[in-house]
Design a protein around this nucleic acid. Structure first.
Lengths: 248, 248
DNA sequence: TCACCGTTTCCCGCTGAACGGAACACCCCC
DNA sequence: GGGGGTGTTCCGTTCAGCGGGAAACGGTGA
């Protein structure tokens, strides 16, 4: 059914990192006539899957999509899917592996798999942390679109947690730019003076991460060379979880 | 467009609390011919919005729906929407109000608005708790379908946290049955010997809660009469948040 | 093992829902 | 005022999607 394919394609456009899209934009992405896209969006808006704030405005996902989302995520236990991937990453790297979710403009540890070594990092599952300090938070931040990042940096005071925390906007943006290129972030002594970590964002099809993995341990052990080795492993694990979530 | 309406209607069937549905079931709910529903589901499954495990099996939401969900929820900051509702509930009841999310088979405090009274309940935002102990957890459990509840009770050891915690299956199920009728749960001394609470589940359109509100305070103040008064207020606040999420 | 029941799948003639090109309307900016 | 780009509307055309009904399938109980 051609219509079903088109509905799905239009809705999936909203997962590409931009929450608001126009008729012409979607038509170009999907190589469809504007009249067809317009007709689809009008019908989707009437049925609640998309919405827009005013006439001639851009479209966004609507209340029915939110309701569908709550149901869809209720049936997928992200944490259960993640645990085996985390165990594999822990065994490969030898360090503690954590999973954090984004909630608002903070992140929260929801699971960890601890290193088997006697000297190890342990985090307090349930603890929240800001996004600007440390590898995990920045792994999420680096997936933000420019406008979103700008909004975040305007809204949040960059209070240093240790004397190694990046807290001025310019150096933060510079670090994020570099991190985007390699797909992971790293930190040493930013949230805890004796800890170091690498982290990789976890995305759906959206480019905006909803969670991240980190590999963390004592600074002495997770030195520059170890972080260089662990970063790509964290990226691979994050990609693995994304595949599992997609059901492929 | 008739097809768009049908696609939306079919997808929304999956938000009614049952994660798996058959052709006949959906056709009956929507009063559509089975051949039409079958054609829609086949097309939705090809495009990834729905999926099924084997031929002739039931359908469920698919990987594209999961991806769409992550994008949709990324644009709705549930916590920001909730805070004004929680403040209003705090002012009406005089007690501390909390918001918990479901993560796996536990819940986690994500926000609180504290009572203005000097003697007050304070929770540790970020702390996790089981679903079987206390008003908040049971507010979530009571929205589970029978099969899901059965699965939960089989999987989780009902370890008492205080000597008032309900920890045998029969009395838990009995309490849940009663709570479903009135739409909220209450507890006194189950997780903390000196605390009492009422809690109401927060749902999308799904009957399975993704979060809950609680009103909590010292047991002496939140006695039977106070809990009777606060329960319906918590239910109204939960419904209010659901409306806000739906964008109505 | 077989019959029954309920569900899923498939078929096919029909028609109006959906199609897309093009023109129009609108808005922003120089 | 005009250019550029986007959103909206129109309308003749056509085939995608329609639904009734039959066939196929699977589970269950005697």
């Amino acid at each position: 059914m051609q219509s079903v394919d088109r509905v799905t394609a239009v809705l999936m456009c909203f997962t590409d990192g931009e929450p608001e899209l126009g008729v012409t934009d979607i038509a170009q992405r999907l190589e469809l006539p504007k009249s067809a896209v317009h007709r689809l969006l009008e019908a989707l808006t009437r049925s609640g899957m998309t919405a827009r704030e005013h006439e001639r405005g851009k479209y966004r996902l609507g209340p029915r999509a939110t309701e569908l989302s709550l149901a869809a995520l209720g049936t997928v236990d992200v944490r259960s899917l993640a645990l085996p991937v985390m165990e594999e990453l822990r065994d490969t790297t030898g360090e503690t592996v954590t999973l954090s979710f984004v909630i608002g403009n903070q992140r929260i540890y929801v699971a960890q798999v601890e290193s088997r070594q006697d000297v190890r990092m342990t985090v307090e599952v349930g603890r929240r942390a800001p996004l600007y300090a440390g590898a995990s938070g920045r792994a999420i931040l680096m997936t933000f679109a420019d406008a979103e990042l700008d909004h975040y940096l305007s809204a949040v005071a960059l209070t240093p947690l240790t004397d190694r925390t990046l807290h001025d906007r310019a150096s933060l943006e510079e670090v994020l730019t570099a991190d985007r290129l390699r797909g992971y972030t790293d930190s040493s002594g930013e949230r805890d003076p004796y800890a170091a970590a690498v982290a990789a964002p976890i995305v759906g099809r959206s480019t905006r991460a909803f969670a991240c993995f980190s590999v963390c341990g004592p600074r002495d052990r997770l030195d520059d060379a170890a972080r260089d080795r662990c970063g790509p492993l964290a990226v691979a694990a994050a990609n693995r979880l994304t595949e599992l979530l997609r059901g492929s």
